[in-house]
């Protein structure tokens, strides 16, 4: 699922134009599941804007199934027509779909979209996939080296792997290639470690390791 986090409210308030009617639009799929843009967040956001920004005449809240499917926009056409601007609590894809569909309306993003990841427990999300478009998880035992290895190495581990942890953050970040090695051992497929993987085009690389989102207020 796509993992996103709400922008700081101060930043959102700065971005909001002085309009008569504002629509806050939530999305009931990924961003609801990662507690960033569901019905509840919409209500809280509406209240916050009403209290903080006296220049905006009217704030309406609404939430649709998915903002990345244009079919769902039909039900809000009337509400959108009434509004002067939309604050979208959806991922980047949703915000773009919304701007495409309602071309004349200003759409302001309310979230920062982070990554494709998994929910590891209450209030803890972990990046799992880069969306690189060329999956090699069969070779690496179901652990993605591009995402889980901090350096995105295709042939690892490097010399910075110590006790299963990565040198960039030995306390919190696991070595992706160590995980791959352990997994391949269980699968009896260690020969895969010996196959040389060709280099990739990393011109549009991500670096800095798998990104994590930790929300203290949700954690047990």
């Amino acid at each position: 699922m796509i993992v996103a986090e709400q922008k700081p409210i101060g930043e959102i308030l700065k971005k909001l134009p002085e309009v008569e009617k504002l629509l806050v639009l939530g999305c009931d799929t990924c961003v609801t599941v990662c507690l960033a843009g569901g019905e509840k967040e919409v209500k809280v956001m509406c209240s916050a804007i009403r209290m903080a920004d006296k220049k905006i005449g009217e704030v309406t809240g609404f939430s649709i199934e998915r903002q990345c499917d244009r079919e769902f926009f039909k039900e809000i056409e009337a509400v959108v027509k009434e509004s002067d601007a939309i604050l979208s609590l959806a991922c980047g894809a949703g915000v773009q779909m919304l701007s495409d569909y309602f071309e004349g309306k200003l759409v302001i993003p309310g979230l920062n979209t982070h990554f494709i990841g998994s929910n590891e427990g209450a209030g803890y999300w972990l990046e799992r996939c880069l969306g690189c478009g060329d999956c090699m998880l069969d070779i690496t035992g179901g652990i993605c080296p591009k995402t889980r290895c901090s350096k995105g190495l295709m042939n690892g581990p490097c010399g910075g792997s110590e006790n299963g942890m990565c040198e960039i953050d030995p306390l919190n970040t696991e070595c992706g290639w160590y995980l791959i090695y352990e997994r391949l051992k269980k699968l009896n497929m260690l020969q895969n470690m010996m196959t040389n993987q060709p280099p990739r085009d990393w011109s549009r690389a991500h670096d800095g390791g798998p990104r994590k989102l930790l929300r203290e207020d949700i954690q047990p």
Partner: peptide, 22 residues
């Protein structure tokens, strides 16, 4: 842990209110 969760929730709202300059 109802009280602890409430404490964290209120911390969250306090931050929201102060960030929004309310």
């Amino acid at each position: 842990d109802g009280n602890k969760r409430a404490l964290r929730r209120i911390k969250r709202i306090k931050k929201l209110l102060s960030d929004a300059g309310i």
